[in-house]
Design a protein around this nucleic acid. Structure first.
Lengths: 215, 215
DNA sequence: AGGTGTGAATATATTCACAGCT
DNA sequence: AGCTGTGAATATATTCACACCT
């Protein structure tokens, strides 16, 4: 791999980097200084060739005959993923799901800091939850800019999600994690990741139906 | 497409079917009887060729020069996904996230019925939540079998997830949706779908870092 | 004419297999 | 001897382009 560039990293590799990072942090916590591709593959549910190929896109990080230095890999992957500095996150839609996400410790551990909440319910607007203020959605464009929010999580009902997305985009946020079961229409320079639990259940259902059919 | 078989449907197509189904149900609700591939593609954020190719794996469902009959497509996709009959679901781990999922209307709308809850907290065990009984995790193998649960959702902390998965597998459940940020080790015939919100945030972070780097 | 169905072409991803370091 | 790094081979997915049907 000569002349490597962050833009040359395949999408499929990018999607596996957080997984590798998690396993590497676990190894580091156990005091393991070195890891070989086959061991890491075992931890990630992948295979050794895949691991080496993926890492080869990041540079020549290993040592032949020895393996990879855990701390060097963590450093490098964190760098690529841009998770070395903290990222400010807002949650839009503060129902049960939004509130559950706010309480989710995994975000903070990985450097994602919830700095603002938004909803349209007058009972909630103006209050603080766990030290974070909840604003009316109408204020989102201004507040998101002022606080320098980089990522917004949409946890509204489906019918309200596009309205939420519009306010988020107006607030200059370029990354959206959408938990509402609907497609968001946003400008090209805004990145949306869609998480739909019903979709996943339906895919599981497909495999159930297939098994039933073959019996 | 001669001699088509459910097993010949590519994985990537399967993963798009729930998306198509959602859009088609919306069209049906609007009273639209026919849809062309380009219109449906617009609704799904896909493209016409992809839509036609995907549907071609299901059979010759359209009419040349006309388009696709919405109700026939819904019927066919529901059949393939196995979502025509109701599916019994259990939620394992009843903290904020588990409770939020229980209240999520989208599951019921799509035919997924939450019939049991599990946790290890003695304060919760034995109570009913929204008409559904919460059992101790130890009872899961028995209860899952008795109720005929087909899909389990793991919403425990990461460290408890494998224990939960073991109990679920012992209960004969073949499909698991894992929301805990850890890999589950299960037998080959058990299907796991992993949803990790931190992972998605990190992938969004990658694109932010890339944009920052190019400025 | 208009839109589907699908082979062929292209692009992307995974796996193999072995050269090249340590 | 052992493990990485990577071209080559294979598999999977997407897009193109047009024959084919209504």
């Amino acid at each position: 791999m000569t002349d490597r560039n962050i833009s040359d990293i395949p999408q499929s590799t990018i999607e596996r980097l957080p997984q590798y990072l998690r396993c590497l942090l676990e190894l580091q916590a156990l005091g393991v200084p070195l890891v070989k591709s086959d061991r890491l593959a075992g931890l990630c549910g992948s295979n050794a060739a895949q691991v080496r190929k993926d890492f080869s896109y990041l540079g020549e990080l290993g040592t032949r005959g020895i393996g990879y230095e855990v701390s060097a890999l963590i450093e490098h992957i964190s760098q690529i993923l841009g998770v070395k500095e903290r990222r400010k996150v807002a949650i839009v839609g503060y129902g049960k799901l939004g509130a559950a996400l706010h309480g989710y410790a995994g975000f903070a551990e990985r450097g994602f800091e919830v700095v603002a909440l938004f909803d349209v319910d007058p009972v909630k607007v103006g209050r603080e939850f766990d030290g974070v203020r909840l604003y009316h959605l109408d204020e989102a464009p201004r507040v998101l800019k002022e606080l320098g929010v980089e990522i917004a999580i949409v946890a509204t009902p489906a019918r309200a999600a596009q309205l939420a997305a519009d306010a988020i985009v107006e607030g200059g946020v370029k990354s959206i994690l959408n938990l509402a079961p609907t497609r968001l229409v946003v400008p090209d320079d805004v990145n949306v990741r869609q998480v739909c639990l019903s979709t996943d259940l339906q895919i599981l259902s497909f495999f159930l139906a297939k098994q039933e059919g073959s019996e």
